[in-house]
Amino acid sequence: MKTRSISYILVLPSLAIMLFTTLYPIIGVLYYSLYSYNIVTGEFRFSGLNEYIELLRDPLFIVSIRNTVIFSVTATALQTLLGLAIAVLVNQRIGGKEYIIPILVLPNMFSVVVVSSMWKLMLEYETGLINYILKFLGFQPLPWLTSMDLALYSIVLIDTWQWTPICFLIFYAGLQSIPRELYEAAIVDGASPIRTFTSITHPMLKPYIALVLLLRSIDTFRLFDKVYLLTGGGPANSTETISLYIFKTGLVFWDIGKASAASFIMLTLILAISILYIRRSILS
């Protein structure tokens, strides 16, 4: 009995902090989303689902959902495929792995602010390295961050540069856990490399693929920092994401009710994605 109470006392502080930092804000957001609450005008009155209806009528919010979904899907797909390809490459019998792996993981060690500034220099229209290479190869320079069609995909590119290493690491760990005998058996049976991949590597890696997809789609869905630092949602709202929309309504225009409603919609979307992934990866 005595050790039991000690164990509860030891858990209590971190449990309290976790509840306070996760559950309390969620309930708070849900509460404020039902009110018309604006700090600037001082308005505070119950309005039911009015804020939600207003949100869904706001074309900017719809655009931000569209952008977020496009970004999340393309970035997750690109990073997962690239990470898998690099992991398979590095997993071959080659020398120098102890130098290659640290170099490949390097991008993930920079903070987002540093990464964004680095790429802003690189993608600069007049002086950037990327446009220099394009001109050198005889192509037209591209307005990476200032064109409506390209800006979102430039951010996909930057995110891919930064986060592919993590996908690579998870896949590499997964590949290392596959017993060598399976590959030796495949060689004895005379299986082609493609057949080896589809019959051994892919099924054995399935849980890792599910994990990477889950982590990356949740993280890309919350995209805020890169957009805020690089384009600020522009040009012409073509890179506006849900997080940025919430930030602007809540902390720039101080419309807390609307921002809370938007946060709650975003939370529901993220929960839906994660439950979908977890269900499918546990069931399979």
Binding site: I100, I103, L104, L106, P107, V115, M118, W119, L121, M122, L129, W161, P165
Partner: peptide
């Protein structure tokens, strides 16, 4: 590796 190091070099 070139793609990884390019921004850092720059």
């Amino acid at each position: 590796i070139a793609w990884t190091l390019m921004p850092i070099y720059w």
